[in-house]
Design a binder for these strands. Structure first.
Length: 566
RNA sequence: GCGGGUGUAGCUCAGUGGUAGAGCGUCACGUUGCCAACGUGAAUGUCGUGGGUUCAAGUCCCAUCACCCGCUCCA
């Protein structure tokens, strides 16, 4: 069950604590665009840094136990428009849509006919007469009065039976099969808003008439150069992946990578969503973390399996431990025509009853490189020199055969691509939802108090630790500040001496800070059991341990991760 | 894009055509002895925006924008 009140509380906390603001808020906002505040930017940076670190700087071991080869890339957002012709976005991202005037449902124009043929009311109506008959006025009237109102309340025949039947009565239905004659009959004389004007299509849901198809182009357009014309029209990229494919040859020629290897990119992408919704989930400007992993076709299924597990585990290890996260293999009917397999990593967000996609791991075959090779006219094939050197001796005595063999697999080929493509903002939203926790328990006066805290993985937490003097006297603030300064060399930490200690803990709980270091009377004592130690309080368990002042930074670093290789 | 709902301080909300309010939070000072303590004081509003009706509009009317709920979507 979708929990909208949960979502409202989370959105309120994000706003209150400075995680996420609506873009351009002082001007009334703008739909589908969001700003990350001081805490949000740290969270998102930590997510992107963790991703980059775990896949590029320090990539995992592959199925064979060897480290995976990965390199990074940062492409421009605006590219030559031909890129989008080659990728299919120029056409595939521009779907004409139609709305039903009666029930207001929205349809992709190319889906109306197939859906119509599946509609029960349509099938019944088609079954009312045999080929070559005159229009079965009486049967139509009976149907319109009995079954029509329930099955197709929007149909003109149902809403305005007399007028439509009168129009139909003047028309002779010529001989011929039920299709296409019947289809034409229906489309011209039964689906209409009124007696004078008949629409050509009917709503598969209710039979009502549809608006003209309208284009929804999901790519943002701009112009390169001061003068706007069709000649210099450009697009903001709808995905970062195409920049990787377009640079495939450059990376190959300059980085000494050998197949199998991956190219990773983190960057903004833009989609002019019809209806942005659900906080930052469907934004018009968003950030992707994408890998294109190039391999031999015969190894591709193994790499596909590897990446889909790898990427799923990455989310689990960073805190999406609940059963809300799932790995779902797409059915055959969902796959793009060139794709052999695709798995979605999905999260059950509180705003929905259905799991929503965080990331897609797709086996794309060599579709993208093929497309770009064709459209650019450039050779994007890979030559496996190692394999050739191994086999060259076989062709030693036949130069022509050698030349021919070198141009074909297994020596020269277009690599197959496995694409783990993740949404950074969706990941951030999932981590925020998963982290949000409420505890209720009575306070000292017996009044129930709700504690709200963000249970981020320490690696993702915007602030790693806070430093408090228990009270502002006896040198505690100075010592706390000094420890804070020491820790700040290594991680993002926060100093606070305002308000009661409980309030300061609560503030850090909402920010998701995993550890609070408190300097108390024992810290400043020259001797005694706890002399020279501070308390470190755990955000989730509320437990405190005493740690020597000199060990605090090391203690924290061991637990929060520094973003560097462990 | 279409239908329904909402919009007043950072947050939650009151305000029934006549002076812009409360609680919480924030800030300052005092206090403080481990989980949103207390005292004193302070700052904070294009009442979403623009028009209209009216002597007078947060309140009535129109338009518009944003958000929420559906239709649709897939990083």
């Amino acid at each position: 069950m979708a929990d909208t009140s949960f979502m409202e509380k989370l959105v309120a906390l994000c706003r209150r604590r400075g995680f996420i603001f609506q873009s351009s808020e002082i001007y009334g906002g703008i739909g589908g665009f969001w700003d990350y505040g001081p805490l949000g930017v740290e969270l998102k940076r930590n997510i992107k840094d963790a991703w980059w670190h775990d896949h590029v700087t320090n990539p995992p071991l592959g199925p064979d136990g060897d480290e995976i080869q990965m390199v990074g890339l940062d492409c421009s957002i605006i590219m030559n428009p031909k890129v989008w012709e080659a990728s299919g976005h120029a056409t595939g991202f521009a779907d004409p849509m139609q709305t039903c005037r009666h029930c207001k449902k929205l349809f992709r124009a190319d889906q109306v006919k197939p859906q119509l043929q599946d509609a029960e009311w349509y099938k019944e109506l088609c079954g009312l007469w045999a080929p070559g008959d005159h229009a079965p006025i009486n049967a139509l009237r009976r149907w319109a009065e009995k079954r029509g109102p329930r099955m197709a309340p929007g149909l003109a025949l149902v809403r305005d039976t007399d007028a439509v039947l009168q129009a139909i009565g003047q028309v002779r239905v010529d001989s011929g099969g039920r299709d296409p004659q019947a289809e034409r009959f229906f489309s011209h004389y039964i689906f209409g808003a009124d007696g004078e004007h008949f629409a050509s299509d009917a709503c598969p849901n209710c039979g009502g008439d549809l608006t003209e198809p309208r284009m929804f182009n999901l790519m943002f357009e701009s112009h390169a150069g001061a003068v706007q014309s069709d000649d210099n029209k450009v697009y903001l990229r709808p995905e970062t992946a195409q920049g990787i494919f377009a640079n495939f040859k450059n990376v190959l020629d300059t980085s000494r990578v050998k197949i199998p290897f991956g190219i990773a990119q983190v960057g903004k992408a833009f989609r002019n969503e019809i209806n942005p919704r659900n906080f930052t989930f469907r934004s018009r400007e968003f950030e992707q973390m994408e890998i294109e992993f190039f391999c031999r076709e015969e190894d591709a299924m193994d790499w596909y399996q590897f990446w889909r597990h790898q990427r799923y585990n990455w989310y689990v290890n960073l805190g999406l431990k609940s059963d809300k996260l799932r790995l779902r293999d797409q059915g055959k009917e969902e796959l793009a025509h060139y794709s052999k397999a695709c798995a979605d990593i999905e999260y059950l967000f509180p705003f929905s009853d259905e799991h929503q996609e965080l990331e897609g791991c797709a086996h794309r075959g060599n579709f993208d490189l093929t497309q770009h090779a064709q459209h650019s006219g450039k050779d994007l094939s890979y030559f496996d020199d190692e394999a050739w050197q191994r086999d060259a001796a076989k062709f030693a005595d036949n130069k022509d055969a050698a030349k021919a063999a070198k141009e074909k697999p297994p020596y020269r080929f277009l690599p197959t691509v496995i694409e783990p493509s993740a949404g950074a903002d969706r990941a951030a939203l999932a981590f925020l939802c998963e982290a949000y926790t409420e505890d209720s328990k009575p306070d000292a006066k017996g009044v129930m108090q709700t504690r709200v805290y963000m249970r981020f993985h320490p690696r993702l937490a915007p602030i790693k630790a806070a430093f408090f003097p228990l009270v502002n006297k006896e040198g505690m603030p100075d010592l706390a500040y000094q420890l804070y300064r020491d820790a700040k060399q290594h991680m993002n930490v926060f100093y606070d001496d305002g308000g009661s200690i409980g309030r300061r803990y609560a503030r850090m709980d909402e920010a998701g800070t995993p550890f609070c270091v408190t300097i108390d009377g024992d810290t400043i004592k020259p001797d005694g059991e706890n002399a020279g130690t501070v308390t470190i309080r755990d955000r989730d368990t509320l437990e405190q341990v005493r740690v020597r002042t000199g060990d605090v930074v090391g203690w924290l670093r061991a637990r929060v991760g520094s973003g560097q290789a462990p």
